[in-house]
Simulated scan of single mutants.
Amino acid sequence: MLPPSVALLGLLLSAASPSPTPNASAVLHAQCRTHAADPRNPWALAHGMDLDGKAFRTRDGRPATDAIVAGFLRRDAADAGRPARLSFDAFAPDGTPVEPHPALQVKTFLLAGHPLSHAFPAAWGPVTLRELVASLQQDFRPALATSPEGAWALDALSHVLKPGGSFQNGAGETVRIDAVMDAALGTLEAANAQLAAGMKAGRPQVPKNKQGIYAHPCGGFHFFQAVTGWARFPSVRKAWGARLDAQVDVLVYRLGSEGRQYEAALVAAPAFRVPVLVQMVKFYGHWLEALGRYRDETGWKPTPAQARAVEEARAALERATLRLEATGAFRDTAALAVKEPQLALDLVGDACHAARGWDLWAGAGHRAK
């Protein structure tokens, strides 16, 4: 008969090892870096760049920017002495998203850290980022400042112009960036009006019904980033003052208002568990990314209450990610793409935004003032 200690050791060795508890951050980063690296999907590549900047590469080892430009940039013939127009289609012929929002790719290249002098290998030869920006300016219309689809163009222009700057578009209009960004702030205020009223009245939540900011792509987070990022200039912060602070307050209020509605939806509609959890990852990830960018670009420091909200958002993102991981959706993204292609795209793009939002608040930089 074996000694008790040896028998116990045998039982321990023969027992199945418990599965390690997944790490939410690792899940999000792996999902983004694995599925966004498809060289046939420029929209996904742009999201990989949102996480890793200009260092992000395709599965075949090319810089993501090179794959996007070489495979998908279009050039129209020059006319009337103007340079050839450069552009991306909204979608490829097979339905793959390329640039479903105007200036998505140029904005991504700029925020990834490429200088205007950087040359990309287009199908016909080198194209600089400066040339891409020039085509964006030719296509730009001031109405984008009041359009939910204007977020990406506004973000791009605000990173190549300074207060007082202007340019002439293809319609011969002089576009003054100060006026454009002032109009964009007004658009953000109007879109957030119901939420601001609910916050002021002390209501626990304002229902989401595709109204106001909820009519914007991704819940208006990209519009918030484009507008508030302009406040990195001291003159803009001074001019906007309390109006800017009010928009940050509304964003913080959204955390509780929207979070309650997602939790209620999980209970009320268990058959839609995966789509609801995807929306939760989208919301918390974009929320953290938006405030993280605002902090880094403007020097904003959260109050103690705002810092607590950041911690609550990080915890909520972690919970939502692990609950989504438990459904197997992250592991089955490729199979899901056949049955529900939009949901599969969301699993990739939203994981990239969430991973970046997580990273932006991973250190001690969020301490309250």
Rank of each mutant, 00 (worst) to 15 (best):
2 L>T: 05
5 S>C: 10
5 S>E: 11
7 A>F: 14
8 L>P: 07
15 A>N: 04
15 A>W: 10
18 P>W: 00
26 A>R: 05
26 A>M: 08
26 A>I: 10
30 A>F: 12
33 R>I: 04
42 P>C: 03
43 W>N: 04
43 W>A: 04
46 A>F: 04
51 L>M: 06
53 G>W: 02
57 R>M: 09
61 G>T: 09
63 P>C: 10
63 P>D: 05
68 I>S: 05
69 V>M: 02
72 F>I: 03
73 L>A: 06
74 R>S: 14
74 R>V: 07
74 R>F: 06
89 D>N: 15
92 A>I: 08
96 T>P: 12
99 E>K: 11
101 H>S: 10
104 L>Y: 15
105 Q>H: 14
105 Q>A: 07
109 F>C: 05
109 F>N: 04
114 H>M: 05
115 P>N: 00
119 A>L: 10
120 F>R: 04
121 P>I: 06
122 A>S: 14
127 V>G: 07
129 L>D: 09
133 V>K: 03
136 L>A: 03
137 Q>K: 11
138 Q>D: 15
140 F>M: 04
140 F>T: 01
140 F>G: 02
143 A>E: 14
148 P>G: 13
149 E>S: 15
149 E>M: 14
154 L>E: 13
154 L>Y: 15
155 D>Q: 12
157 L>S: 04
159 H>D: 08
162 K>F: 14
163 P>C: 09
167 F>D: 01
167 F>T: 00
168 Q>V: 15
170 G>P: 01
178 D>F: 06
184 A>Q: 10
188 L>N: 06
220 G>L: 02
231 A>R: 02
235 S>E: 13
243 R>E: 08
244 L>G: 04
247 Q>T: 12
250 V>F: 04
256 G>Q: 02
256 G>M: 01
258 E>S: 13
259 G>L: 00
268 A>E: 01
272 F>I: 02
273 R>A: 07
277 L>E: 11
282 K>W: 07
285 G>V: 01
288 L>I: 01
288 L>M: 01
288 L>V: 01
296 D>W: 13
297 E>L: 11
299 G>Q: 11
302 P>V: 10
305 A>V: 08
305 A>M: 05
310 V>D: 00
310 V>L: 05
315 A>D: 12
320 A>L: 10
323 R>C: 14
324 L>D: 09
324 L>K: 13
327 T>F: 13
330 F>W: 05
335 A>V: 12
337 A>T: 06
337 A>P: 04
340 E>G: 07
344 A>Y: 11
348 V>N: 09
349 G>F: 03
349 G>P: 00
351 A>L: 13
352 C>P: 00
352 C>E: 01
353 H>S: 09
354 A>E: 00
356 R>A: 01
358 W>C: 02
362 A>K: 14
363 G>A: 11
